[in-house]
């Protein structure tokens, strides 16, 4: 039977845990605001770039020499799954959701006879998936100790993905991350990266599409634009995930 002393100790313990979690909440709230501002700021570039790609890609997609980033290898044998998670835990089901989605996707693809490789961004994802994909990590990136993610970080990751594609290491690439829906909710989504889905233009209300002149010609332009588009998508995933992580706390 709990005596008075044991009860006191218990009360104290709950109180100090409460102090820690409420302090974490406060910190998360201010980090969340910063992350949200970063998300907002990145939107115009992403929108415009998607618009350019939509104007450009249809003219090149059918060409036999279309860049690999756009059309992939035209095969569907090896899949690369890129999972974006947080560096730290204590964020509810935030990291586990991504891990579980990757696991399910991997099981489904393997049931179809495909080879699955995994890359992780964030320490938690690597720890979660370590046993499932032992020895088949394409690469792992960790931003531990980094205060704010920059576009440079995303660009470096997109270059690694591009190099793996050029080396024939995979045919199809999918990004899995927690999309920031609102302050209190995140949604784990799968985004196809390669082959690049051509962004659908908001057809309604935009009227007839302007006919552009291109300089240099379409294929050269697209070859420069696609890596940038890939980096933009990864950047978006990184900052949405960072905002979602703080929201989940």
């Amino acid at each position: 039977m709990a005596n008075l002393k044991a009860l006191r100790i218990r009360i104290n313990s709950v109180r100090s845990t409460q102090k820690i979690t409420s302090a974490m909440k406060l910190v998360a709230a201010s980090k969340l605001r910063r992350a949200q501002a970063q998300m907002e700021a990145a939107r115009p570039y992403a929108e415009r770039l998607a618009h350019l790609l939509a104007a450009l890609a249809p003219q090149v997609a059918s060409s036999p020499t279309a860049p690999a980033l756009l059309v992939g290898t035209r095969q569907d044998r090896t899949h690369l799954l890129v999972a974006v998670t947080a560096e730290r835990g204590l964020a509810g089901a935030f990291n586990a959701n991504v891990g579980r989605t990757v696991r399910q996707l991997k099981a489904r693809l393997e049931a179809e006879g495909k080879v699955v490789k995994v890359a992780t961004i964030g320490r938690k994802g690597r720890d979660f998936l370590r046993r499932d994909v032992a020895g088949r990590f394409a690469f792992e990136v960790s931003f531990a100790g980094k205060k704010q993610i920059t576009f440079e970080d995303a660009h470096a990751i997109s270059e690694r993905i591009g190099a793996l594609l050029a080396a024939g290491e995979f045919d199809v690439c999918t990004l899995i991350y927690n999309r920031f829906v609102s302050v209190i909710s995140q949604q784990t989504i799968e985004v196809p990266l390669i082959p690049t889905p051509i962004p659908a233009e908001a057809a309604a209300g935009s009227g007839p599409r302007a006919v552009y002149e291109f300089e240099p010609e379409e294929e050269t332009l697209l070859a420069a634009l696609l890596p940038q588009y890939l980096a933009t998508q990864i950047y978006r995933a990184l900052i949405e995930s960072a905002a979602g992580e703080q929201g989940a706390r």
Binding site: Q38, A41, A42, P44, Y45, A46, R48, T150, E215
Partner: peptide
């Protein structure tokens, strides 16, 4: 409009802009 991947740097009406096109 002048936009970098991280933010919108400039958005204003101007008379002319000279840009360093690849060619």
């Amino acid at each position: 409009e002048l936009i970098s991947p991280e933010r919108l740097l400039l958005a204003k009406p101007v008379e002319m802009v000279v840009i360093p096109a690849a060619e």
